[in-house]
Simulated assay, not measured.
Amino acid sequence: MGIHIVLTADRAGVIPTAFTANIGTRIVLRLAGESEYAAAGVDADILDHSAGGRAVVNGYELQVAVPGGVADLSAQSTRIEALAVRLREAGLPDAEPVERLAGFIPSSDLPATVAGRPGFGVDDETLGPVGIPLDGLFVVTGPFGSGRSTAMTTAIRAFRVAHPEFAAYLLVARKSALAGATAWTEASTDADDAEALASRLATLLEQSSAMPLDPLIIVIENIGDFEGLSAESQVARLLKAARRAGVPVLAEADTVTAPAAWQVYSELKTARAGIVLQPEESDGLGLFRVPFPRVTRTDFPVGRGILVDSGKLARVQVAWSGPIAIDR
C-alpha cells in the first residue's frame, strides 16, 4: 500500500516481541554493550572505534549521510528547509500530518447528532464524532476526578439539543453538580425529594401500558449517594420501570462507591451502553460484562474513556460543553 513505518529504540530489548517479526530491515548503530549487539544479531566488535553515524545494515557497514555534510545541527536544519522549498517548487505536496486525539474538544466542534444520536465526543480510532446511545440505560462511571460530571453535563445538553421535546427529570440525594446543566422539568434537592420523585415517576411508568406517556428522560446523579437511604429502593424500582417502558435513563456511578448501593447497582448491570472514564482493565466485566483490552488508567486523560455500545468498544474523548459547579 506504499506505507512505510520507521521505529527507533535506544536498545534492542525495548522493541516489543510482537513487532520484531514484522521488522524487515534493521539499521544498527553503536550500542552500549556486547549483550545489546547480540540481541540485535550483530558482532560485538564491529563498530568499535567507529565514527558517529556508522551502522550495520544487512551485514554491511554503512556511514549515514547528513545534510550538507556538516555536523552542525543548525546548518543541517537550513539545508533541510532549502530542500523542502525546492520540493514544493517542483510540485510535491506536503506530507499529511499524523493527527492524534485531542485532550480538549469543545462540544461546539461536534454536530448536533451523529447517525441520529446526540453528539457526545470523538473516537480515538477514526477521529470522527461519536453519538451517545440513549435509547435505554446509559451509565457514566469512573473514579473521582475522571470527569464524570463533565461527561454527564455534555450528555444531558446534547440530548436536550437533539430532543428538545423531552421532559427532563433529575434525581440526586445530595448537593448536585448537574442542577445547572439544563432547564429541568423537575429536580430533587435531597434524598427525601428524590424518593418522592422516583416513586411518582415509577408509578407513572408502570402504568404506561394503559396510558400513553409524553417523552421524557431521567437523569440519576451519583448512584453511590443513595447507599443505605430509603430512597435507594425507589430509585431501583424506577430504573426497572424505565427499562420495561423503554424510557432513556442517564445514570452516573463512581467505580468505588456505587457497588455499595447494591439495589440500584444491580439494575445498572442491565445496561447495554455506557462509558468508563479513566478505566482499569477489570472495569468492563464488573458493570457491562464485556472484557476490556489491557489498559492502564494513566493512558487516559480526564474526560477520556472506553465507550461500550451493545458489546462494541471504542476509546472516546468526551466533549466539553461549558463550566460546571462541581466536577467529579
Rank of each mutant, 00 (worst) to 15 (best):
K175R: 15
L171R: 01
S188C: 01
E165C: 10
L178V: 07
E186Q: 15
A183K: 13
L171Y: 02
A177F: 03
A187D: 00
D190W: 00
A162C: 12
L170T: 05
A167R: 15
A191D: 09
A173G: 13
L170P: 02
P164D: 02
T182H: 11
A183W: 09
P164G: 07
A168H: 06
A191F: 07
F166N: 12
H163K: 14
G180C: 06
A179W: 07
A187K: 07
S176H: 00
A187W: 00
D190Y: 04
G180K: 08
F166W: 11
D192E: 14
A183F: 12
A183H: 14
L171F: 03
A168F: 10
A177G: 12
D190N: 15
L178I: 04
S188V: 00
E186K: 12
A183P: 01
E165F: 11
L170V: 03
W184S: 06
R160P: 04
E186Y: 10
A179K: 09
L171D: 00
S176N: 03
A179Y: 11
A179G: 09
F166Y: 15
L170Q: 07
T185W: 01
S176L: 02
A183G: 13
D190K: 02
A179N: 04
S188N: 01
R160T: 13
G180R: 09
R174D: 12
A167V: 01
D192Q: 14
F166L: 06
A167S: 15
R174H: 13
F166Q: 08
D192S: 12
A168W: 01
A168I: 11
T182D: 09
E165S: 15
T189I: 10
L170M: 09
K175S: 13
K175V: 14
V161H: 12
V161D: 14
E186F: 06
L170G: 02
S188T: 04
F166P: 05
K175M: 12
H163E: 07
L171Q: 00
Y169A: 09
W184L: 08
A191S: 15
A183Y: 13
V161M: 14
L170R: 05
R160N: 12
A183N: 13
T182G: 03
A187S: 13
V172W: 02
A181M: 06
H163Y: 10
A177E: 11
A191H: 06
R160H: 11
W184N: 05
R174W: 09
A177Y: 00
A187M: 08
F166G: 01
A177T: 02
V172G: 06
A173K: 05
F166A: 07
F166T: 08
K175F: 11
Y169P: 04
R174N: 14
A173Q: 06
D192Y: 11
E165A: 14
S188W: 00
T189Y: 03
A173E: 03
E186C: 06
T185Y: 00
